[in-house]
Structures are given as structure tokens and as C-alpha cells.
Amino acid sequence: MSSKALLKAQSRQESGSGVARRLRSAGKVPGVIYGANREPQMLQLDKSELSQLFRHHTSDQVLVDVAIDDRPAVTAVLKEVQRHPYRPLFVHVDLHEVSMTEVLRATVQVTAVGTPVGVTTQGGILEQPLFEIEIECQAQALPESFPVDVSGLSIGDTLAVADLKVSDEIRILTEPEIALFHVVAPRKVAEAEEAEGAEAGTATDAQ
């Protein structure tokens, strides 16, 4: 289950790019909260609170408690966090209010843990073709990420979506045969071997 942090927010009435710029200049981040049982509501959040939150979470999709205008907090998922492309600024935040038993579809990061034996002792390269998978679960079971132990992989080995170990509360929607990690031989070595093979074949033909 994801840990929950508390975010304090204030409702706002004004919108538009000029308003958003003024908010960001004042250390605030424009946002919106919506859900199945509420009308969308424009908010402003504190930039420092968001920065603190992401110092402890690697994923944008975090389960949080949101207290709006000092009212009792509601549970929400940070659905989308827009960032400036090259400056350390939050541009906009979308929050989706949920109940803890509500079933959600979410995209969750997959991260490698450890170093494959195929890299440390065989000189291979670890590749990760897929960095996120789609899942379905109740909000209370939403994971922040899926750490995967890759230390046992040798050159030629692959870990696919089907190899993920998840709780019974989580249903994986991504196709099971898609590769998450594999260890490959260094390309330069492979290319050199192919070149040597081609030269040997040419020499044999000449004889």
C-alpha cells in the first residue's frame, strides 16, 4: 500500500495563464481536483510541500490526503503532475479524489534492483525496454513502483511482465509476454565476432 502524505490546498476562482504565472511567482502551484462524486474544483497548492513530497516518492502517481481550505482531508491520487521542461518548476497538478476501496486503473513504474551477474562477470549490458506497466486495483493497494531484482540475469536472459510478483489485490493489464529487462552482449563484441565470421567465410570461398 502506498504511504499517504498530507497536502494543504486553497480553493481559487480565477483561471488563465496570467493567473497561473502569478501563482507560480508567489510559490504556489495551480491545480484541480475532480472525482466521480464531486464537481471539478480549482485549487492552489504550496510548491514547497510538493517538492518535499517528491523528495520521498519516485513516482508522480502518489496517494495523498488533501485538506482544502482547512476542511477535513479527502483522499486523492496525484493523477498528473506537469513540470517545466528545463526549469525546476511545477506547472500544474491534477488530483483525482477516490475512496480507498475504489478500483483504479493506473500506470506504475518498474525499477531495477541490483546488478545482473551478466553485467558484473560476463561483460553484458542491462536493457529495459519497458519502464511502466498498467494495472488495476483498489486505491488502498496502489503501489508507487514495482522494484524487480535483476541480479540473477545472465547474458541472454529476459524478465517479462509475466515474471512480476504482485499481490492478489493487483491485476496487471499490460501484455504478459512484453519484456521488462534483458541482458545482452556488448554490441561492439557482437559486431567484431560477426566481422570475423564474414572474413573467415570470404577466405574459405577464396580457397
Rank of each mutant, 00 (worst) to 15 (best):
E39S: 15
P40V: 12
D46S: 10
Q52M: 04
L53G: 09
F54M: 03
H57Y: 04
D60F: 14
Q61R: 15
V62Y: 06
V62T: 14
D65S: 02
I68S: 08
P72A: 10
V74D: 12
T75R: 02
T75D: 11
V77L: 15
V77T: 10
K79W: 03
K79I: 00
K79G: 08
E80Q: 08
R83W: 10
P88K: 15
L89A: 11
V91Y: 09
V93R: 13
D94G: 00
D94S: 05
L95T: 00
L95H: 09
H96Y: 14
M100S: 05
M100H: 08
T101I: 06
T101E: 11
V103W: 11
L104R: 01
L104T: 09
R105Y: 02
Q109E: 09
A112I: 13
A112S: 02
A112P: 04
A112W: 11
V113H: 13
G114H: 03
G124S: 13
I125T: 10
E127Q: 13
P129A: 06
L130H: 11
E132Q: 15
E132P: 06
I133P: 01
I135N: 02
E136I: 03
E136G: 04
A139Y: 05
Q140F: 06
Q140H: 07
P147M: 04
L153G: 14
